[in-house]
Design a protein around this nucleic acid. Structure first.
Lengths: 194, 194
DNA sequence: GGTAGACTATGACGGTTGTTATAGCCAGAG
DNA sequence: CTCTGGCTATAACAACCGTCATAGTCTACC
């Protein structure tokens, strides 16, 4: 009966997310993901019968939910605190990886889909962005920001942080993150002051 | 004597930039780049003896200079006009490619470098971001913005636009670009009003 | 004890990757 | 005409890719 396959499956997903955040999706092979998670190659196709696409999709959703959890918790103290947590989270990833890792959701988002259909991993990336935006926007509205303004600012925050993380990796410096943080913080302060 | 190799070499670089902006660096093979530019595979190694890295580096610099040219020109009319042009430029790429293309500089920036050295293409990406930021910051300062504020805002603009373009691709919608545009425009207006 | 089913081990498949080598073409210079 | 040098054509190289199939192991329940 479903003893539920130990943490093996989850280890693969988490490892895949980390790997994709460094190398991008297409540069990450299933063999490497398996090895990185100390799982046999056969297991990946056992747990993810649809292959690489499914694994990528779950990796995206995994980080999406992981970030959303942190966001939800910190946003209880208001949008400014949420922003701080959001920024700190990505700064940690960038710094601790010595500027090698970034956001796996972004990495998947910029992979070219086949001309005719939308791969599930790309759709998942879109949903994750949307979720993060919604969390931020709701928190802004709860502090008195108008609906339009809240939506725009939430999109700006997610986009800016994603872009900034990439810039930090290229420059091998956290300075872009410092600058973006300053601007975004001021923006939130102004938006909820009404 | 240096008849200068026709536009063949440049066609390869431009094609490589387009291709990288869609698929990312590692998913773009030299063979495909050659075919896309209607050049023989042998020619790519003739023009770019250092191989893929060199081609990627030149592709990054190529788009960097191309965008910078547009930016420089439109910034003569002030930061607001420059921002409008910057946004319009990326919107065009995203829309005309049916959400398949993005920014090749970002694509190169998020490729993991080997642990010990910095690949030239990544360094080029950092320089390109820096150049765009400098252009915007100088224009902001020329309109009365403080040095610190100008630098922060310039970084935010570049990062936000890069991130927004990726979000548009994932969502297959230009709405994120509309929202970011609105926010960024308001920000510039406030910054140069002093 | 036996049996079902979850997991692993192994190996193969056709194809593509970056790169190099070699030989050939073909315009322009002497 | 010869000859040089920029460019191309073709083939090969070892390594890797995603995926699949098969046989084996191990554990949990009857």
């Amino acid at each position: 009966m479903v003893k539920s396959s130990a943490p093996s499956r989850e280890r693969i997903v988490a490892g895949a997310a980390d790997m994709i955040s460094r190398r991008g999706l297409s540069a990450t092979s299933i063999r490497e993901m398996a090895k990185h998670a100390k799982a046999p190659l056969g297991s990946t196709y056992h747990y993810f019968p649809e292959g690489k696409q499914q694994l990528a999709t779950e990796a995206v959703r995994f980080t999406g939910e992981w970030v959303a959890r942190s966001l939800r918790k910190e946003l209880e103290a208001g949008p400014a605190a949420g922003l701080r947590a959001f920024l700190a989270l990505w700064r940690k990833i960038v710094v601790e990886s010595d500027f090698h890792a970034g956001c796996p959701v972004l990495a998947v988002a910029i992979e070219e889909p086949p001309a005719d259909e939308i791969p599930p991993a790309l759709a998942a990336a879109a949903e994750v962005f949307e979720q993060w935006e919604d969390l931020l926007a709701a928190s802004l509205r709860a502090r008195g920001a108008g609906a339009e303004q809240a939506a725009q600012l939430a999109t700006l925050i997610v986009a800016a942080v994603e872009g900034t993380v990439a810039m930090c990796r290229a420059k091998r410096s956290t300075e872009p993150l410092d600058r973006t943080a300053e601007q975004l913080q001021a923006l939130i302060a102004a938006a909820i002051r009404d």
